[in-house]
Computed example of a mutant assay.
Amino acid sequence: MASSIFDKLQVEFIDQDESVQVVADTIGSSGEVPERYVRHEIEANIVIIDNANCYSLPVIDMSRLINPDFSEEEIAKLGSACEEWGYFHLVNHGVDAGLLQQIKADITEFFRLPLQEKKAVAIPPNDLQGFGHHFFFPKEQKLDWADLLFLVTRPVEERSMDFWPTKPSTFRDSLDKYSLEIANVSTKLFKLMAINLGVDEEALLGVFKGQTQSVRINHYPHCCQADKVLGFSAHTDGVGLTLLLQVNDVQGLQIRKDGRWFAVKNLPGALVAMSVTFLRVSCFRSHQILTNGKYKSIEHRAVINPDKGRITLAAFHKPPLSCTIGVGPLQELLMKGEARYKTVDVVEFTKGYFTAKLEGRSYLESLKLGV
């Protein structure tokens, strides 16, 4: 249950009763954004737009990854994507097209419900799961322009069903099925990454055995002053692998590489019959540690559209908190050089990640050796 997770972490999560959708509706097309949402740093950022003449993000084909005739070449592309970007589009991933349609429809319908109905699954004080605005924030912290629904989805026994919406009626069933299919995709990717890294598959999969999967379903309302707010502050995820489903066709994802921000286009035609959908795969913090720095930990953020709301579903996969295996470089990689990161257990890693996020500093940097 979520409460047992935070008993272990001893991190305080504060309830926030404010809905960004209500704020957006209140200011309308001409009102002023409340100061607590205004992000002055955006003005100083130069953003590079994704186009054929500028740059192109990697596209990885799962059907080629598992096809003996093409797997060697595609696995090499997978490794290059993780090393250079820490990010790639995944196509032909095998998730049922009908299921994708259903989960997108259910999520969209949930966020269209009146606020009082959504608050039936509101995040309680000092907890994580449910509908709300923010997990935690000091009073001086700027707020993100987003409402969210956060749920632990796997293992099944870790679910808190009180926070799973019953409206629409198909929501629980479609999320259950989606979580299983996405878990299977993540397992395949972990195996293929192990091949690319030249390590034993079980060594990498062992870290994620009994992996915890959670989902953060994000609704970023439109804002008439979109250049003043951020949907999600710049961050890297404290997990091993994130799979992101774009629920509608509104863009807003940006990633940071070599000190510059890159706007990410949705990938037209990436999923058959789902031309406005893509799955994003990111090799984040614990992968950077496990791979001894070989795979990148990519910083990313969400920006806001002035005319349309954006909805996404991010599925996070990480080792269980009960895992006794330390999060540190894989031994096979240490044979090729000295360790660049400390080894910490999963609870210590997760607690340090949240604490560092609250204090606005990089936890990953604090785990480096010899610095």
Rank of each mutant, 00 (worst) to 15 (best):
T236K: 13
Q225G: 12
C224H: 07
M193H: 10
T236M: 11
G238Q: 11
K209V: 10
K209F: 09
G252M: 03
Q251E: 15
G240V: 00
L197S: 02
L241K: 05
G252Y: 03
T212L: 06
V247P: 00
G240H: 00
L205Q: 08
A226E: 07
S233E: 15
N248P: 05
D249K: 01
A203S: 14
F232P: 05
I217V: 15
N196E: 12
N248K: 05
N218Q: 09
G240F: 00
C223E: 03
G210C: 12
Q251L: 09
E202T: 13
Q251T: 15
Q211T: 09
Q251P: 10
H222K: 15
Q213R: 07
P221G: 04
S233G: 14
F208H: 07
Q251N: 15
A226C: 10
S214Q: 11
L197P: 01
Y220P: 00
G231V: 09
C224I: 06
V207Q: 14
V229F: 07
D200G: 04
H222L: 12
V199I: 12
Y220M: 03
G238L: 12
G210N: 13
H222S: 15
C223M: 05
A226Y: 11
L243F: 04
C224V: 11
E201A: 09
M193E: 10
P221M: 05
I217C: 09
C223L: 04
D200K: 04
V239L: 04
P221K: 03
L230D: 05
N196P: 08
H222D: 12
A234P: 15
I195N: 13
T242L: 03
R216N: 09
I195A: 15
G238E: 12
T242P: 02
H219K: 05
Q246A: 10
L230E: 06
A234W: 13
D237S: 11
K209L: 06
I195Y: 11
Y220K: 01
M193R: 07
K228C: 05
T212A: 09
Q211I: 04
L243K: 03
F208L: 15
A226P: 06
S233P: 13
D249M: 01
V207K: 14
L245Y: 04
T242E: 02
H235I: 15
G210Y: 09
D237H: 10
L244T: 00
V229P: 06
Q246G: 04
V215Q: 14
Y220G: 00
G252C: 06
D200E: 14
V207F: 13
L204V: 11
D237C: 07
C223S: 08
Q246W: 01
G231R: 03
N218P: 05
E201N: 10
T242V: 03
Q225I: 04
L204H: 09
G240Q: 00
L230V: 09
L244F: 01
E202I: 09
Y220Q: 02
S233H: 14
L230W: 03
G238R: 09
T242W: 01
Q211S: 15
I195V: 13
L205A: 07
V250R: 00
V199N: 01
H219D: 06
G231Q: 01
